[in-house]
Each structure stands twice: as structure tokens, then as C-alpha cells.
Design a binder for these strands. Sequence first.
DNA 1: CTTTCCGTCTTGAACGATCCAATCACCATA
DNA 2: TATGGTGATTGGATCGTTCAAGACGGAAAG
Lengths: 337, 337
Amino acid sequence: MTPPTLADVAERAGVSRQTVSNAVNNPDLLRADTLERVQQAIDELGYLPNRAARNLRTRTSQLIGLRLSPVLEGTATAVMDRFVHALVWTSKEAGYHVLLFSQDEEDPLQGYDDLLRSTAVDAFVVTDTYLGNPQAAWLRRRRAPFVSFGRPWDDPDAKHPWVDVDGAAGTEEATRHLLDRGHELVAWIGWRKDSWIGEDRRSGWLRAMHGRGLSTTGLASRVEDTVSSGRDASAHLLDADPARRPTAFVCASDTLAMGVLGTLATRGLYPGRDIAVVGFDDSQVAQVVHPGLTSVRQPLEEAARLLVVGLESLLSAPLSPVEGRLLTPSLVVRGSS
Amino acid sequence: MTPPTLADVAERAGVSRQTVSNAVNNPDLLRADTLERVQQAIDELGYLPNRAARNLRTRTSQLIGLRLSPVLEGTATAVMDRFVHALVWTSKEAGYHVLLFSQDEEDPLQGYDDLLRSTAVDAFVVTDTYLGNPQAAWLRRRRAPFVSFGRPWDDPDAKHPWVDVDGAAGTEEATRHLLDRGHELVAWIGWRKDSWIGEDRRSGWLRAMHGRGLSTTGLASRVEDTVSSGRDASAHLLDADPARRPTAFVCASDTLAMGVLGTLATRGLYPGRDIAVVGFDDSQVAQVVHPGLTSVRQPLEEAARLLVVGLESLLSAPLSPVEGRLLTPSLVVRGSS
DNA sequence: CTTTCCGTCTTGAACGATCCAATCACCATA
DNA sequence: TATGGTGATTGGATCGTTCAAGACGGAAAG
């Protein structure tokens, strides 16, 4: 009924508890024949070390804490889903499991604090690194091990490993792709100016346009990340100056791009033929909408992998040099361009 | 540096360890003034019980295991995301955390087995209950506590609590909604016959149609759950018999509905005006696509809540009567109908 | 005045693993 | 044969908590 313990295995194999422990954790300390005997007993009993006991003794939990961000209905954020998958997968390879917790409405740090004080997790993966988010700074003060997906925008000398995706490179590639197809009036629809991520992505568009000697005057719009904002912004840009009517849109998100597609649909314009549209995130929406939304895809699997690598080195050698990694996204071309 | 222990609190409050333990777990055993003194020491030190030690002693982990299903690119399955959120939230209310693990490619039961044998989780939440999935039967044989989201289709006398959504009721409401708007030729695009869920949803459409004395001949199609299948199926239905050309489509998933929208777009037909379309799952896709996809929304928050309730009673009284709960989904009406 | 009882608190043991120091077996060397 | 060294194996202590049982004091009952 109750799972077998180390002592059970030891008795069956005719050795001491410590020898069984070594067989599991330091097999090279045992003589070959002893190891085999112990291994056989382990297999026969289906023994696996009791997690709680091991955790207590070693002061680790082999768990990584991840706080889920609140779900936003009406947006195309399928990013987290893919990222969580990738993180769970790579964590498993490294011998860790992922523990989810949710945000406390009153105190956003509550969840972190509780898990730390009860030594329930070994480290955290932080994902919301937008400006003004107190998590990173707080965790640092608390000396809690963590890595972040997203660069520390407001803290140039942050001491934690991080991985981020080069949004500017992504939009630059997206814009170049449109320019290569003959577009010259490529408009930008992005987020409000106080979003560092938004400004980063916008800079890629600027770079591509200016790189070809094209003016961006009257081609940019900064709005909230909602479908209706994207719809309104694109309609406005299309109606503004007939001489500079955009023939293509690059958007800071798939959500905004869906708004653009909405504008086109109501006007009888066909995406990809009449007007080109590119989104960001390669969400499921981009994949299933007609005629397919070209989008910048983040290498989330690679990001997760590197985060876990960073976590491992952080936990094994807390004073090792800290590094940040910037990954280059790729463009997935579909019918909309 | 290291978190305070029970002994630290005990010393500070001038009581024994056990008294502190009681203050935390059975406060009514203490005299009021003692309790207050201990509580103050706890607050001052920021004490929280060490999880590993507690787990070891009580033989519980306060963790619920959830296996992530493989991500399917190109489909609109945003269901899991919402469900996981809801589950994490309600679990927290009940004092549990959610531990994620991924599917082993070789042996789908491996992850479950390891977590059980190492006593890492108290119970599982199983989500993939499609026909032939060995999880439920295996867990039952293993006498592992679990609840499932999805009814035990192939096992009428299953002994575990489950919660499911009445798919038939959902499509029935969707179909009635279309009939009420004057449609008479409402077509069905669903999954292959071996999918119980698909057949369940289909039966709702049948019920609604027959309830109004309408024939369903030549109005149904059963295909794979992909966008292109939905596109092909809808095109075929529209071209088949001019006398019975569908004016509306009810689909077993948002993915299929997106295929229908694709067909309409290529033919210059406007969803909601020329042809009505209803999907299933109320995915993010349905919410952001133009002009909005009417869809059946599953009460995932309620489902998660009931699952946790079931889990609690299962863990506190393993022999309590088992119950299954069928929840009724709701229809979210948008531009496409 | 003694006994019983109850409420309150304390002590020692246990959960199942790992760490530490000590022991043992074995073989090579003097 | 005695000595030394190496590597395999052992018993005991420990991690921080909860459980079981006992100690203590005062109040109620005999």
C-alpha cells in the first residue's frame, strides 16, 4: 500500500541504507556486483526516493515556481501557453518540475513570498518584466534565485540571468519582407509609448524604413493592445492622407493585426492582395485566420531551454557570472502578405 | 539567511515546539493569551512551516498533478489555457498548488507513475478522457486519487469524480439560436465518428433540427479537426445540392468554424449577413476574428471549482459516494450569426 | 482531604531521505 | 607476518515538522 522505502530496498538487497542511497545518487562509489544487486532490488520493489524526505534533507524541492499572468480575454496572447509547455519540457530534462501559482489581487508579491518562506520552490521564472514591475527588484533584495524571460529594461546592472527575444529584429525583418515585396508605405501600429517592449518593436520598423531611405511620417500609430484599437487605428491611417495611404501594416501584436484585418474585411479589401498585414507572436489566431496572418514568431522553446540552463548554473554556482541572452525571432509568412 | 523554524518561534515565544505547531494547525487548543504571544512571534519572524518537513510527516504534498497535453499548432485550442488558470486559482483557495508535467513520448503513463511513487503529488486532474485513453483505468487500478475533466465515456461505472460540459446542450442551443433567426438549412461540421465528444455535440444539432421538424439530410459532414478540413467541408456542402444549400453552419470546434469563415471569405460572402457560422469553445480566435465568431463557451471556471471540490472530498473521505457533474455551456453571440 | 477530571502545555519519537565519520575487507608492499 | 592504503560499507545524527503520550495545575466531586 505505502510505497517502498530505502530501508525496504536495503533489506531486500542485503545492504545498508546508505549503500542504496549511493546506488541512486553516486553509483560509481559501489562495486559493480553490489550495484547490480541493489538495482535489481530497486526495480523489483519499484522504489523511487520519497520526495518530501529528500527535500527536507537536501533543502531543495526540485520545483520551479511560475506565476501565471492574468488571462486577457479578447486578445491573441497564446504566447504563454507555448512557453509554459516549453518550460515544463525543458525543466523535466533538467530534473525539475514546474509549480504554478496565481497572482494575489491585493499583493502581487504574496505568492512569491509564501513559496519562498515555506521553501516550496528552488527558484522562480519571472515573465512579466514590463517597466515598473516590482517582482525582479523584490526577488533580488530577497536574494531569491530567479531567471526572467524578458530583459530587465529598467535595471541595466541586474544580477540575474535573463533571456529575451529581439523584438526590434523581428519587426525589422517583417518590414524588410514587405519592402522586398514592393511596398513603400508600410505603416506601424504599436503600443503606447510607455511600453518598452512596444518601443523596441517599433524601432525595428523605423530601422528598416530608414534603411531604405523611406519616410515614416504619418505612418505610425500607438494605441492600446485591443482588436478595436487596431481596427480604428488602421482605418484612420487609411483615410488620413490619400497621397500616403499605407499599402502594408506592421503591428506590435497579432491582436492589433486582427483589428487591421477587420478593417480590411469591412471595406472589401483582401489581405495580402490589396493590403499586406504582419502581426507579432504567431499566435493560434494568426495560424487559423483566413488567409493566414504573417507573423513574427518567438523562439519560445529555445528561450525556455536557455532559462533552465541559466537556472541550473544559478543554483549550482550562485556566484557565477550572470548573462543575458537575446534571441532572434523568425518571420512566418502566410497569406496576409 | 535560512528561514526561521518552529523551534525558533518556540524559543522566542517561550513555549514548546508543539505549542507553536498547535497555534498554526489547531489554534483552538491554546489559551487565548498564549495563542496571541505565539502568533506575535510568528509574525515577527515571518515564520511559515517548512513544506518538505510537513509533507514528510503528514504524507501529503498539497500538490495536484496536471499533465499538459501536447500543443497542437494550427488549431484554436485555447481551452487549456483558461482551464489551467481556473484550476490554479481554485486550487489555491483550497490550499493546493498545481504541479505541471509533460507527457513522456514512449510511455504516456510514465509521468504519473513517477510522481506517484515518489509521493510528489496528492492527486491528479486528468483532462484527456477521449476513448481509449488508458490514464483513467490505469490510475484506478493503481488506486491513485484523481478527478477528471471529461466524463468516462467508455466506463459507465467509473469510481472517480468527474466534471464535464454538456456538448449536446451547447450545440442544441447554438442550433436553436440559428433556427430562431430564420435559418432552416443549418449544416453540421463535426469530427470523425469515433470521437465520442464529437458525436455528443452532433446529437445536440440533430435534436434541435428534428425538434423543429427539419430534415438533416445532406447537411452533415464529419472531418478532421483542422482549418482546411473545415474549409473543404463547408465548400462541399455549399456546392452540393442547390436546393438544400446551407444558410448556416454549426461546427464542433472553432477551428472548423474558422475554416468555414475562410470559405466565405474566398467567395465574397459575409459571415452573419450571407451565411451564419457558430463555433465551439469560445477560443481567443473567436473573440478577435472579424466580425466575431459566435461560439459555445464552456464554463471552465465552474468546472475547475467543482473538480477541486471533488478532489477535496476524495482526499478527506476516500470512500465517499462518487459523483459526476454535467455543466451546461453558454452561447456567446457575435457578428457571425 | 483525597480523588478524578479537564484544559493546557511539554517531551520523546517518528516520517524517509542524506551527510558524516568510522569501520571493515581487501590487496600490495616491506 | 606485519603494515599501510584504498575503496566499499556501516551506524548514527540530522533536516523541520506532526503525532502520541505524559506532566502539570487547578477545579469539581467524593
